[in-house]
């Protein structure tokens, strides 16, 4: 299968600082790819880069190939034709991401009329259909509502309606459910999951909620300090995290199935903060890593293929992995 999106060595720099340092990944049609990492790991900047909305003074490097064409090499005019039509985006804050002085209908109609030849009546009908598609009850009435008349979950549905209005091939959801409460979160993710199957649309889910990733994503990519540190299918990544950072992330999240709950005792935290990564010569995670060695400071560890469909950027194999590999070799 040819990839819909192929990001190669993508980097973002603001002057001397480089918050995204050469990230490569691919997304296939209809796939839900999750990018996880803490604040400052560069995941949101990567997302903004994918849609060409980085601040003007940001310097980008590498390649973003979308259907074979390098997006970074194209003009602002070409970007505008892609935004909203081929690539949709949903942002974190549903409360502030909709224009307060325009009705939700007007905001959906706007994206339709920019990219498709529709007259007012057709566009309005499409807007109502889209509101129905994202499960907004009484869509015909709601289409004339202003954002402040809707709840947070409803607004995020409207954002999704705008995002998928022109049947994009790729939808980027940047922390799209973080600001919502848990039941609404599940509904929105279910909706995104249905839509990507119905519309055969790739979804890039940017989040720091590992529970969401485990439940919904087809593939997960862990970022730390502007680099990809691990990638694989959610199930193996979460049961056998390879990179110490992934292990730390998992240790720091409450999980019912592991029996570890924050009521039983404090969650394990990753010591230090991501700020320690700035100016680090070798592995960016070294200052916080429990299993760091002197050699970690020499060079940035390369991503290695450690299993089928599995990449990690740590030269040391965790003990559980060693025993597993050992078991496997004994069995064979």
């Amino acid at each position: 299968m040819t990839a819909l999106l192929e990001v190669r060595d993508f980097s973002v720099a603001f002057g001397a600082s480089q918050p995204v340092k050469g990230v490569s990944f691919t997304a296939n049609p209809g796939e839900m790819l999750a990018i996880v990492g803490e604040s400052g790991s560069g995941k949101s900047l990567t997302a903004l880069g994918l849609i060409g909305l980085l601040p003007r003074h940001a310097k980008t490097g590498g390649e973003i190939r979308f259907e074979g064409r390098n997006l970074l090499a194209q003009s602002e005019r070409d970007w505008r034709r892609i935004r909203g039509r081929d690539i949709g985006m949903i942002f974190q804050e549903p409360m502030t991401s909709l224009n307060p002085v325009l009705t939700v209908g007007e905001q959906i109609i706007e994206v339709l009329r920019i990219h498709e030849r529709l007259d007012r009546k057709q566009a309005r009908q499409r807007a109502v259909d889209l509101l129905e598609l994202v499960n907004i009850p009484e869509a015909r009435k709601r289409v004339d509502d202003y954002p402040h008349q809707l709840s947070g979950g409803m607004r995020q549905r409207v954002m999704i309606a705008i995002g998928v209005a022109c049947n994009p091939k790729l939808l980027i959801a940047d922390e799209a459910t973080t600001a919502l409460d848990v039941t609404i979160q599940a509904q929105i993710l279910q909706l995104l999951d249905n839509l990507r199957r119905d519309l055969n649309m790739a979804v890039i889910l940017i989040t720091h909620d590992l529970g969401i990733v485990a439940q919904w994503a087809d593939r997960v990519m862990v970022m730390y300090a502007g680099r990809k540190v691990e990638e694989g299918l959610p199930e193996p990544v979460f049961t056998d995290p390879y990179h110490p950072y992934t292990r730390g992330l998992l240790g720091a999240s409450p999980r019912a199935e592991s029996g570890h709950h924050y009521r039983d005792g404090p969650l394990i935290e990753i010591p230090g903060s991501i700020v320690s990564a700035t100016g680090e010569k070798g592995c960016a995670f070294r200052p916080r890593c429990p299993s760091a060695q002197a050699s970690c400071g020499f060079a940035v560890p390369a991503l290695r293929q450690i299993a089928e469909d599995r990449l990690a950027a740590c030269p040391f194999t965790p003990t559980r992995f060693v025993s597993q590999i050992h078991d496997a070799s004994l069995r064979s």
């Binding site: 909305l53 505008r80 935004r83 039509r85 991401s97 909709l98 224009n99 706007e110 705008i162």
Partner: peptide, 8 residues
């Protein structure tokens, strides 16, 4: 930003 992401 949303409006820009729509291609306005």
């Amino acid at each position: 930003r949303t409006a820009r992401a729509k291609g306005v």
